[in-house]
Amino acid sequence: MHKLDKLSGIREEIVADIPIPEEIFYFQSCVASNKYPGIESCTLDVLNKLGVKPFVSEDQTCCGGFVTFANVAAPTASMPAVARNISLAEEEGLDICAVCNGCWTFLNEFGHFMNGNDEVKESVNMMLNMMGREYKGESNIFHIGAMLYKLKDRIAENVERPLEGLKFATHYGCHYLGGGKYGAIDDAQHPSFIQELVEIMGGENVDYTASGECCGTGFTQVINDKEKSLDHSQMKLESVRDEADPDFVIVLCPYCLSQLDRMQQQLDYRRDVKLDIPIIHITQLAGLALGLPKERLAFDAHIGGQDRFKKALNKIGIDY
């Protein structure tokens, strides 16, 4: 019995199908835009630097995922929101780039669902027609992580601030690799594409046991049973601190970022757990390497890990 030729689980056929467009519909995320403006500014600047023009729509709303994930409304209730948002990109003839695992899964899955169910699609379109719109199901939805991986050669050519001497750990998040097993570019259990990007940028990868664990949000848990959510985040973050001790943890999802970042403060005052771990989004990682100014990286908006932020950023010549 032969063993795998390569340990990387990257699904080359899916990567090959991702186009490198001149322009792409940047799908704004509630958590990114409101809690962590650095994700938004880095996405816009990084895409521009890599030769892909981001299109920003004033008309876009929330993906609709939060109300569904939190069991506030039936999935069908948010389907028109998904259809409307995708139709905005279709009108421009653009594919969509999502920066959040939730937005990505939600647009993908509900889009896929409507494309395969004419009855649902028709009834959703009846509502959309009242707004003078139509959902066709023509735009593809890509995750920014997959886009950046696709653009890795351009990233390599544009590294202005090599991340030498810095240690990076990863947290991929359930709703990209786990939820998107048909469209995600990497193996859900042994992902490696962020590590590959970190290497291209000159950083060092470090691993920890709980790297595949949920951030602790578990959507309803963080609302219904906060202690359970805290337990889980604590286990995860202690594994990061004790085993990897990274300068940064890279996440794909703003909601994971929010959980892992803000729970550090709560764990401190509720349970006296001391953590100092900078959690940043993959677009902020790209922003760091591509030389964006600290105002655009906007690490000030992060709660946890501020001492480590200062130490790490000083190492690569950023006066923070």
Binding site: M1, H2, K3, L4, L7, G9, D187, A188, Q189, H190
Partner: peptide
């Protein structure tokens, strides 16, 4: 005997000391 490479959750061929029954 099937090669359980698709079952990456079990780490076969990625982790030492994970083997098939064969």
């Amino acid at each position: 005997y099937m090669e359980p490479n698709d079952y990456s959750e079990y780490g076969y061929s990625r982790l030492d000391n994970v083997v098939t029954s064969q």
